[in-house]
């Protein structure tokens, strides 16, 4: 799996001190089953925030 994100880091450049996602984290972002679960979780969280805001 690719570590492409790490390759964009430039030593002592703007982005030298940040964190980058590894291949597994990137894969999870487009894994349909995982994202379906997250879809439900995020929706619930957003609805709670909406409820607290009204």
């Amino acid at each position: 799996m690719s570590k492409k994100a790490e390759h964009n880091i430039k030593a002592y450049g703007n982005n030298f001190t940040t964190m980058t996602p590894g291949p597994f984290a990137i894969k999870l972002r487009t894994c349909k089953i995982w994202q379906f679960i997250r879809f439900i979780v995020i929706n619930i969280k957003m609805l709670v925030v909406v409820r607290k805001s009204h």
Binding site: L28, T30, K32, W34, Q35, F36, R38, F39, I42, N43
Partner: peptide
């Protein structure tokens, strides 16, 4: 909270 992924995109 914040996260990146397809789920947010569907939302």
């Amino acid at each position: 909270f914040g996260e990146i992924g397809l789920a947010g995109h569907w939302i």
